[in-house]
């Protein structure tokens, strides 16, 4: 019998509490982001939509750990190919050639360290092809973890609609850069070959002299 009345009081109490929650929700902030009208990749512009109205919700753009479309900073890239090896579906393709030795530094001149060895990263090779197929990519983030210089990163971008599948392949090295790099590499190779030849000739002459 007491359970019977307990049921009734419990019913009224829970309805009371539930209705207070839904009523409060009516006056709480609306979380809807009217997506195509606002740029939700940035925290600043999400605050204003196209009509100049201010968005008042509690969502604040994409979170910092959001894994969007990949981007590569070629000035940091050492063309080591670790990302290519880390990628489980092989959507990254890198070809590389030799280049001038260069200590990597960021815009302020501070040296960039290799994440794994904690030593200054040295660039000895440059890529002539750095393609990421965003259509294949599954945004797992393994390449980002593998990169020693933090050259490859996830952006907060996620919109990439195209009419052509080939447009989904992101090419970070342009043809001009490729030609330039190849030319430079050829020069370096020729230089190295000349050096080698000179060294060999020298050794030969010294041999001759010794004989």
């Amino acid at each position: 019998m007491s359970a019977y009345f307990e049921n009734i009081t419990n019913g009224f109490k829970s309805i009371f509490e539930g209705m207070s929650i839904t009523f409060a929700a009516m006056f709480s902030r609306t979380e809807t982001v009217q997506y195509p009208e606002v740029d939700i990749t940035s925290n600043e512009s999400i605050r204003k939509d196209c009509k100049g109205k201010t968005y008042k919700g509690t969502l604040m753009g994409m979170p910092d750990n959001y894994r969007g479309i990949l981007n590569v900073d070629l000035s940091k890239c050492t063309a080591c190919g670790l990302c290519m090896k880390a990628c489980p579906i092989e959507c990254i393709i890198i070809n590389s050639v030799k280049c001038d030795k260069d200590k990597l530094a960021d815009a302020d001149g501070n040296p960039i360290n290799n994440r794994f060895t904690q030593k200054g990263a040295i660039k000895t090779r440059t890529s002539t092809r750095f393609d990421i197929n965003a259509g294949k990519c599954m945004y797992c983030g393994l390449c980002v973890m593998a990169c020693p210089t933090e050259a490859i990163v996830h952006t907060k971008r996620f919109e990439m609609n195209t009419e052509n599948l080939n447009d989904l392949v992101l090419r970070f090295v342009s043809d001009e850069q490729k030609e330039k790099a190849e030319k430079k590499a050829n020069e370096l190779e020729a230089e190295a070959a000349a050096k080698k030849a000179a060294k060999a000739a020298k050794e030969e002459t010294s041999k001759d002299e010794g004989a």
């Binding site: 009523f23 902030r29 509690t58 604040m60």
Partner: peptide, 18 residues
């Protein structure tokens, strides 16, 4: 009770960094 619930609701969800 509504006021209490409203206060709890308006705490931003992802204001904390994960």
């Amino acid at each position: 009770r509504v006021k209490v619930n409203l206060f709890e609701m308006n705490t931003p969800v992802n204001s904390r960094a994960t």
